[in-house]
């Protein structure tokens, strides 16, 4: 019998590597386009509603997630992701897609145990690590400010 190391060599020689240049390019284009659309939406909110450059990001994010809902529901987000990779996963629409796809998927187990219980099964870790790191960073900064090392 072949040993694992030898097999790993043989296997990696035959298995195609991800086409890195192409993937980076499509990620750039896809992610850039989503942010470009986001910029357009935020200009819209600034022009027609009472939002500033700072506050416009809230309705912009909500609008993008709404668009992600439609694309996910009609089975299109998956196709964009196959093309764009991280370009569609990293923007907030990817977060929306993770929540929405899990919600749609688990509807068959009911709204409470299915949708409610599984909605964050993919996106939950992002919230956890966001909150945990925000807590630690803000805590360190507060301590440093108290000791006069840095200022706000």
């Amino acid at each position: 019998m072949m040993d694992e190391k030898k097999y790993a060599e043989l296997e990696s020689k035959i298995s195609p590597k991800p086409p890195l240049i192409r993937n980076l390019f499509t990620a750039f284009i896809t992610g850039g386009t989503i942010c470009l659309i986001g910029q357009g939406i935020s200009v819209f909110y600034m022009t027609y509603f009472d939002f500033t450059e700072r506050t416009a990001s809230n309705p912009t994010v909500a609008t993008l997630i709404f668009i992600a809902m439609l694309l996910t529901g009609f089975g299109q987000y998956r196709k964009i992701a196959q093309f764009g990779g991280a370009g569609s996963a990293v923007p907030i629409t990817g977060f929306g897609n993770a929540v929405i796809s899990a919600a749609i998927e688990h509807r068959s187990e009911g709204y409470v145990l299915g949708v409610g219980g599984n909605m964050f099964k993919l996106a939950g870790s992002v919230i956890l690590f966001g909150v945990a790191s925000a807590f630690i960073v803000a805590l360190i900064k507060t301590i440093l400010v108290k000791f006069g090392v840095v200022s706000w």
Binding site: P16, G75, R78, Q82, I104, E105
Partner: peptide, 13 residues
């Protein structure tokens, strides 16, 4: 793997 509509990029393998 993932929910059916979740966007993940599948490799050639």
């Amino acid at each position: 793997r993932y929910p059916v509509e979740y966007g993940s990029q599948k490799p050639e393998t």
